[in-house]
Design a protein around this nucleic acid. Sequence first.
DNA 1: AAGCCGGGGGG
DNA 2: CCCCCAGGCTT
Length: 373
Amino acid sequence: MARKPSKPHPGARDKATAQALVRWFKANAREMPWRPRPLGIKRDPYVVLVSEIMLQQTQVSRVAPAFERFIARFPTIESLANAPEPDILALWSGLGYYRRAKMLHAAAQAVVSDHAGTMPSTSHALKGLPGVGAYTAAAVASLAFHEPTAMVDGNVTRVLLRFDARRAGASDPKAIAWARSRADALIRHAGPTPAPTLAGEALMELGATVCTPRSPRCDVCPLRTWCVARATGLTDTIPTPKRTKQTPTVRAVSIVLEDHAGRVAIETRPAKGMWASMVQAPTIEWADDSRDATDVAREALALGPSAKLRERERFTHQTTHRRFEFTVLTVRVTDRMKRSIERQRPGLSWATREAIAGMGVSSVQARVLLNGH
DNA sequence: AAGCCGGGGGG
DNA sequence: CCCCCAGGCTT
């Protein structure tokens, strides 16, 4: 009998896609300190946890050196659980979102106290750890235990929205939920273990290096023959843009107080909020733009007329929800002034720049205290 | 559902 | 230089 050209089997597109992903990944996976060779062997779950928490909101190039320092200093989950928080924050310096470091510490302590020091092996159990949400739980379960669960971050959501040409925002919770089930289904077509894990890693790598937010390199994409956005010219309009946010401006003055021995004054920020628990030069923030930084500083530290404040620099520092206008003042202090300032500013202490470089310091305070690292 | 948390890279 | 990005917790 005459056969019509066979219609593609449902799932055939997914199977071809998943296999193409694995092939492409084996040929194009970047070297990373946390990515052991050969690809597809089970990884140390503690090492995966550290690297994935660091990689939340942070780019690979920033994480790589910090990761190596961190693992060298805290090679096991017990060593991390037993460490003082300031030591952990010190190794998190410059990475931002410092609450992640506190929650990683809490997660290590939870593994030691609630799981006898052994990392949980399922994404469901992992989600019970502090700081471990759907993405990180899937990453540890997939990379360390070969659970066939897809890691869905912003990159993967973008790849899949384009692949199926769904017009949605990449941070829309509904779109993320859809992408999770879509990715799970897709990677399970890749073949027997560890193929689903490799396909999942491939989706992440593809989003990071090829299916980028702007100017995606569709010409070299392993999914180009099946991608609906490419076929319909929608690549540049998916994901849909999110509305922009207005950020208030905050003025800040940091005072670099230096004594005769070359030590400078430092204090620790509150345990919650911006730059939580990080070390800084005495810093005052205010919103009223009519006030002068030098006046604010003089008043806050109760500096007398003999204290010579010099303005070293002004710069702006943008964060997600605030725009800071920093003024940096320097002043040499006598022993008499030190005692007066210490009474005015409880919790203040004195340290050499060398010592401060080994503490938890934000990027902006590294600029203030250490001339930028 | 919306807001909070840093920092760097790309156009 | 402005614009963009994004996981998990808290409210």
